[in-house]
């Protein structure tokens, strides 16, 4: 056992892995979305047709890339939960919700509604506040 609060060096590592987690999760969801568009809309809900669609899904390379990104996300998420408080990791990971409209606006030039900009602002302030608190408030246990 060691001290209750996370060390400053560990906090830097936690911030980097949170950023990587957000990126991996966003990439995974985008890749799955692109992959499912290639598979096509599911219109026949009969069990046999659904099974065929499922098989076709796994022949699309983008789906596999999406699954790989989500597996990487999950492993990094578990690492984070072993290092930091849940009440730190969960809100800090919400930065992804702010990144999507920002990326859509700056890179793709998509219009973003006033409500979304208000949401981006609230998330940014909230993540900033959570980031100012210690990453870990429970006792540290080494594997």
């Amino acid at each position: 056992m060691s001290s209750a609060a996370a060390r400053p060096a560990a906090e830097g590592r936690i911030a980097i892995v949170i950023a990587l987690t957000v990126i991996a999760n966003t990439c995974g969801n985008l890749l799955l979305s692109v992959g499912m568009k290639r598979v096509g809309e599911i219109s026949n809900w009969a069990p046999g047709a659904l099974a065929l669609t499922l098989l076709r899904t796994f022949t699309v390379g983008t789906i596999w890339l999406g699954i790989a990104a989500l597996v990487i996300f999950f492993v990094m998420y578990l690492m984070l939960l072993s290092w930091a408080d849940y009440s730190y990791v969960q809100p800090a990971s919400a930065a992804g919700y702010a990144l999507v409209p920002l990326t859509a606006f700056t890179i793709f030039g998509e219009p973003v509604s006033l409500a979304r900009w208000a949401g981006v602002l609230l998330i940014t302030i909230g993540v900033g506040l959570v980031g100012r608190t210690p990453a870990r408030t429970t006792e540290l246990r080494t594997a």
């Binding site: 919700y97 973003v112 409500a115 979304r116 949401g119 609230l122 302030i125 959570v130």
Partner: peptide
Amino acid sequence: IRWVGVLLISCGVAFVLAG
């Protein structure tokens, strides 16, 4: 501070998803 941050994020996520 963490409570305020969590509440702001909660409202922000709702705004982004509803907007």
